[in-house]
């Protein structure tokens, strides 16, 4: 079980709990604004872009090369950017706070 907090672009704070699957899927199921997950999680659309709060970066790790290539061409990308379809829910990311990019 992991608690994941999303902060949307209009500053709404929503905390969800999940056990398996991707963070994107959890967000889509719960209609988190700004996370569409159009491609279903295969890293082809960048509609699940989030900024990990700096203190949580150790939990999520950095983006893979393919993810980075995708992020490079998206808006508002910085060193804390991740595509949350590539974040697997597990105890390791419990307590993580993600700011939705869109």
């Amino acid at each position: 079980m992991a608690k994941i907090t999303f902060i949307t672009s209009d500053n709404e704070k929503i905390t969800l709990e999940g056990t398996t699957g991707s963070v994107m899927a959890l967000a889509v199921e719960n209609n988190i604004k700004g996370i569409d997950g159009d491609c279903g999680g295969v890293c082809s659309c960048a509609t699940c872009h989030v900024h990990v709060t700096p203190e949580n970066m150790a939990k999520t790790g950095e983006a893979s090369e393919i993810e980075m290539d995708m992020l490079e061409l998206d808006d508002n990308t910085d060193e804390y950017s991740r595509l949350c379809c590539q974040l697997e829910i597990s105890d390791a990311i419990d307590g993580v706070v993600l700011k939705v990019a869109k």
């Binding site: 491609c39 295969v42 890293c43 082809s44 995708m70």
Partner: peptide
């Protein structure tokens, strides 16, 4: 295929 950054769309 898990990672599939295609440009089909």
């Amino acid at each position: 295929r898990k990672i599939n950054p295609h440009v089909g769309f």
